[in-house]
């Protein structure tokens, strides 16, 4: 199989790389670009750990080939706040103990980012529904729901 050249923008940085057509987007992000914040929990599209945003929509990077992302704008967990300056969603996860092992966390954060941009998330049921494609084995979801609710509240209160 011959390698193909692709151009992608990841977290605002433009990359040109030559990749095998069968290389998964998740492996491309993690091992070609070294962005290991995106996790792989199942490689078959169920757990949501590998969730990233592709052109503004959440997508499972284990179900896409890197070549399919040619020309796309990708956001990963590394695009959110930094250790010294976490964003409101990350702060809410910290405050409410919404992570234990942290393996599902990047996918949760990216899904929640997508949800918060698009939906009002007025009730906990809506939040649960929105997160239902992301499995967490540690938290029982209770604290994750509280954290997202808090982040939604904070976003509403913030001056626009």
């Amino acid at each position: 199989m011959s390698a193909r050249a692709i151009k992608v923008t990841v977290n605002g940085v433009a990359y040109e790389r030559s990749v095998e057509p069968r290389l998964l987007l998740a492996d491309f992000l993690r091992h070609t670009l070294g962005l290991t914040g995106t996790h792989v929990g199942c490689e078959h599209g169920v757990c949501g750990a590998c969730t990233v945003l592709v052109d503004g929509d959440s997508a499972r990077s284990c179900l896409m080939f890197a070549v399919q992302a040619d020309g796309a704008r990708i956001e990963t967990v590394e695009s959110l706040g930094t250790i010294g300056q976490m964003n409101a969603l990350q702060e809410a996860f910290h405050e409410h103990h919404a992570l234990q092992c942290g393996f599902c966390t990047p996918g949760m954060l990216m899904t929640a980012t997508d949800l918060m941009r698009k939906y009002p998330l007025a009730s906990d049921d809506e939040i649960r529904e929105g997160l239902s494609g992301n499995l967490c084995r540690c938290t029982g979801y209770e604290h994750i729901v509280r954290a997202v609710r808090a982040a939604v509240g904070r976003a509403k209160d913030a001056p626009s």
Partner: peptide, 19 residues
């Protein structure tokens, strides 16, 4: 007390084996 391990895990800087 908020956990000391959180910031690295929330910012994609966790250090898992496959990383």
């Amino acid at each position: 007390i908020k956990r000391t391990e959180d910031p690295r895990l929330l910012t994609g800087l966790g250090n898992f084996v496959d990383d």
